[in-house]
């Protein structure tokens, strides 16, 4: 039933209310195949809520969500994942008692059988440069490493779209740089939506940016134009120019 030429992801008038609070309102959003887009905005702008509406951790109270033209507004989280969407949450959701490889094997079990499981694991380990820590247990890894393992788990299903919620939160400078490189590597096969705060990071992955403000889309554009936009600077930090 997928429409030909339909965008990979599209939302029409998506809104999310909590009681009387409109956290997200009337969001029309489009993402094409292979695109890399960052969602930014000040705290409480609704970007994380919008993210959770896409993953169905929240059920949007209005509007429709389309995946390659197919209406997935009422689909539960696991069904979204099965349609080729890989999701990484803000706090790493990994299996602490298992090794890196066991984590990946479990993730790969979702979409593969038999030998394909090991192939998918090998590939994910290779792409995210995790070979050195493959046998380590997750509870013995650093925060940054845990984030990368979670990315690798997401990759095992070879998703068409990857959703990342603040992938660099709590990382050191070197870890942020490495993560930026990993995201570009992932972008070779998948479209990505990244919720992010760190402007330096967004510039380093040189990407399209959508700015959220008060639950609505405030501006759209390339990283450069958005950062030069004085209106964005104002809502974001109360500054005239984000580059200054």
């Amino acid at each position: 039933m997928a429409e030909r030429g339909a965008p990979l992801l599209e939302t029409r008038g998506v809104g999310m209310r909590f009681g009387g609070v409109k956290a997200v309102e009337d969001v029309d959003f489009r993402l094409e195949e292979g695109e890399l887009r960052c969602l930014i905005g000040p705290n409480g702008a609704g970007k994380s809520t919008f993210f959770r509406c896409l993953t169905k951790q929240y059920q949007p109270t209005s509007g429709t969500v389309l995946l390659r033209g197919r209406d997935v507004t009422r689909a539960p989280t696991h069904a979204i994942a099965r349609q080729g969407v890989g999701i990484k949450t803000q706090v790493p959701n990994v299996f602490d008692g298992l090794t890196v490889r066991e984590n990946l094997r479990l993730a790969a079990t979702a979409r593969h059988r038999g030998r394909a499981i090991d192939e998918a694991c090998d590939q994910a380990i290779e792409r995210l440069s995790l070979k050195a820590i493959g046998g380590h247990r997750l509870d013995r890894l650093s925060h940054g490493q845990r984030q990368w393992v979670e990315l690798a788990m997401v990759v095992t299903s070879r998703p068409a779209l990857i959703l990342l919620d603040e992938p660099t939160a709590g990382m050191t400078h070197a870890e942020v740089e490495h993560t930026a490189a990993l995201i570009q590597e992932l972008n070779r096969d998948s479209a990505l939506i990244v919720v992010e705060h760190d402007m330096q990071f967004i510039r380093s992955i040189a990407t399209g940016v959508t700015v959220f403000h008060q639950g609505r889309i405030f501006a759209d554009g390339t990283a450069e134009t958005i950062m030069r936009d004085p209106r964005v600077g104002e809502i974001y930090l109360g500054k005239r120019n984000l580059l200054s």
């Binding site: 539960p76 989280t77 696991h78 994942a81 099965r82 990484k88 949450t89 979702a110 979409r111 788990m153």
Partner: peptide
Amino acid sequence: ARLGKIVVGMRENELRMELLGFDT
């Protein structure tokens, strides 16, 4: 077996299993 791994994964982290596409 596969079912056992899934079941234990669910005990450890139900949200992660759902995000991976398992109907918990």
